Computed example of a mutant assay.
Amino acid sequence: MVFSLSATELEATLGVLAVKMPSMNVQLVMLSRLVRLVNTTIQSELNERLRKHHLSESLWHALLAIYARPNHEILPSELSSILNLTRTSATRLSDVLVLNGWATRTTHPFDRRKITLKLTKAGENLIQLVSPETNEVRRRGWSALSEPEYEQLQQLLTKLLTAV
């Protein structure tokens, strides 16, 4: 991974800011920036791979959310909740999934007022095609960590997330 600003340069910049702003907690700013840089770097490569398949990150996560559900079906409201999107954004994603033939819309079998999204065979095939590429990007992105370090980082980030 290549950052536009090295960790050393970032530390130097933060050192200058710490002098000018004594109340700044440089360590917290540094940690926040490093987490963002790691995420941005991995996401950038993921998005590059996804674009080759005419996918955005949102579409990819929508496909995976549907794939993970029983019978590969989901209500748009559930998709909205899982992806933390507005219902309007989830509807737009659904439109693109249907337009590309990766999902179909059907009336819910028990409540005709609801629409169900169902993954098509083309959607399943796309997941099988793209998944190894996204897995490889993530594996390389986190390869500097040993298994115990990875587990520790996951626990720490989970702890932070529940505190925010």
Rank of each mutant, 00 (worst) to 15 (best):
L63C: 00
V38S: 07
L126C: 04
L156N: 13
K114R: 09
M24K: 12
E149R: 05
P148Y: 01
S94C: 08
E149W: 02
L31D: 11
L97G: 00
K20E: 14
R140I: 11
R33F: 13
E149M: 04
G101V: 02
L10M: 09
I82K: 08
A7C: 08
E11S: 15
F3K: 06
E11D: 11
G123R: 00
H53T: 03
V26F: 05
S81C: 13
T40K: 14
L153T: 08
K114V: 08
N100F: 10
P22C: 08
L129V: 12
R105T: 10
P148L: 02
L145M: 06
V38H: 09
W60H: 03
R138D: 11
S81Q: 14
L79T: 01
R113Q: 06
Q128S: 07
E9G: 05
N84V: 14
A7Y: 09
Q154W: 07
A18W: 07
K114G: 03
L50M: 06
S32A: 14
N71V: 09
T91R: 10
N84Q: 14
M21F: 15
E73L: 07
L46C: 03
R112V: 11
E9A: 05
L83M: 11
P148Q: 03
N100D: 10
E48N: 11
E78P: 03
T88G: 15
S6P: 01
G123Q: 00
A18D: 08
S58K: 14
D95M: 12
E11I: 15
A90D: 07
Y67Q: 00
L153Y: 10
L145Q: 04
S89Q: 13
R69T: 03
R138G: 13
V98E: 04
L28D: 12
L46S: 05
L117H: 00
N135T: 09
D111I: 03
L85F: 12
P22S: 09
E147C: 10
I82M: 13
G101D: 05
E136M: 09
L59Y: 07
P22A: 05
T120I: 00
Q154N: 09
E45I: 13
I115M: 09
S6A: 04
N84K: 15
S4W: 15
A103N: 01
E73S: 06
E48I: 14
M1W: 10
L34N: 07
T116M: 06
R138V: 15
A103P: 00
L83I: 07
R49V: 08
R105P: 05
L83C: 02
Y67S: 00
W142C: 12
L50G: 04
L10C: 09
W142A: 04
S77Q: 12
L14A: 07
Y150F: 13
N100H: 12
P132S: 05
T86G: 09
E78Y: 08
T86L: 06
N100Y: 10
W102H: 02
W60R: 01
E149C: 02
L17R: 11
A68G: 03
E151N: 09
L64K: 00
L83G: 06
T134F: 01
L10T: 04
S146C: 03
L161R: 15
L37F: 09
E45L: 05
V35D: 15
V130N: 01
L34P: 06
P22M: 04
S6Y: 10
E124G: 05
S80P: 03
A122R: 13
L83T: 02
V19A: 15
A18L: 08
E151M: 08
